[in-house]
């Protein structure tokens, strides 16, 4: 059990060689966002609450038809969230605006996965079942998933849903950005294609930002000068334009730092190349060999 100096370095070398891990280097954190992703710009002033997007989403993704698909009235009485049966839902909000006839003006807001540029869920996923694709879509691979739900904990928008009633093979359910369609030329996400008023504009994210800024500039007094998702959590593929404060339509106020930045920075600076565990191992081994030597030394016998 005696650990000589030479042995100690041998061990260090062996441990170092066995940890030829891919470079998760301790350098400064950098965004892993795709260069030119697609995106969607949702213009809340254009949405009329027809819920066709819900219907088309369910059809395209082979989900059960939405609850009362043609209802534009009582369905809005409760605030809904996307769940394992619906990747997107439209909610109605009365934000205090009134029209020329003193009637409250509703604002409709569609909710779905925002497809963040640096998604927290992708960073969190233990097995890499969630990936950020070149198209901008955050994709889910059920064959890797172990069902730990850490992605749901991580998501700042509370989007991933879970098949809680499936005992053996529950899946994480969320908007796919219709990956199979948009990755083909001219393909559109189901919701954007069906929307009668083009409240959802589909295109390259960079283009959409220009369109959005132009729309804000050309319609003074209509839009808030803020494209939600341009900077929130480092930017999202889906963005929103609105005439009412985003908080009132349940789009949470978020920092501009990408969610995974802090955790990845700390994690990598501690564990890249497993330097800290190896160092700790070495220090402890040195300690152990010293105490062992002391214990073996007959002069110290008896002392604890």
């Amino acid at each position: 059990m005696l650990l000589s100096r030479r042995n100690f370095f041998k061990i260090l070398g062996a441990a170092g060689a066995s940890t030829a891990l891919p470079a998760g280097s301790a350098q400064a954190w950098s965004s892993k966002a795709p260069d030119d992703p697609y995106g969607c710009l949702v213009d809340l002033t254009r949405c009329v609450g027809c819920r066709k997007c819900e219907e088309e989403c369910a059809r395209v993704n082979e989900l059960p038809a939405p609850e009362r698909p043609n209802c534009q009235c009582t369905i809005f009485e409760k605030n809904r969230r996307p769940d394992d049966d619906a990747f997107t839902v439209v909610n109605r909000y009365f934000t205090g605006r009134i029209d020329n006839f003193n009637k409250p003006v509703p604002t409709y807001a569609k909710v779905q996965c925002m497809h963040c540029q640096d998604p927290a869920c992708v960073s969190a996923c233990i097995v890499g079942a969630l990936t950020k694709d070149e198209t901008g879509a955050v994709r889910y691979n059920k064959d890797k998933c172990i069902g730990c739900r850490y992605c749901m904990v991580a998501c700042p928008f509370e989007i991933p849903a879970y098949e809680y009633d499936d005992p053996i093979t529950p899946k994480v359910m969320k908007c796919t950005f219709c990956y199979d369609r948009i990755s083909k030329d001219g393909g559109l996400p189901g919701c954007a294609g069906i929307c009668p008023t083009e409240a959802i504009t589909f295109g390259k994210r960079s283009t959409l930002l220009k369109v959005g800024k132009k729309r804000v500039k050309e319609n003074p007094g209509i839009y808030l000068d803020h494209i939600y998702g341009e900077k929130e959590v480092g930017g999202t593929s889906w963005m929103y334009l609105s005439s009412v404060p985003f908080k009132k339509v349940k789009l949470p106020g978020l920092p501009e730092t990408p969610s995974p930045k802090l955790s990845e920075t700390i994690h990598h600076s501690l564990f890249s190349y497993l330097w800290s565990p190896i160092a700790l191992f070495g220090v402890l081994a040195a300690f152990m060999s010293r105490t062992k030597k002391e214990a073996d030394n007959p002069d110290n016998k008896g002392g604890v």
């Binding site: 998760g24 969190a124 996923c125 233990i126 998933c145 730990c148 739900r149 093979t169 995974p260 990598h268």
Partner: peptide, 26 residues
């Protein structure tokens, strides 16, 4: 009991995500 796909608990051994804290914990 907690993870939904208990039978898949071995998968992190072959699917590595070094950005994931949970991966390291596991």
């Amino acid at each position: 009991v907690d993870i939904g796909r208990s039978w898949a608990i071995w998968k992190p051994m072959f699917n590595w995500n070094f950005n994931s804290v949970l991966f390291e914990v596991a």
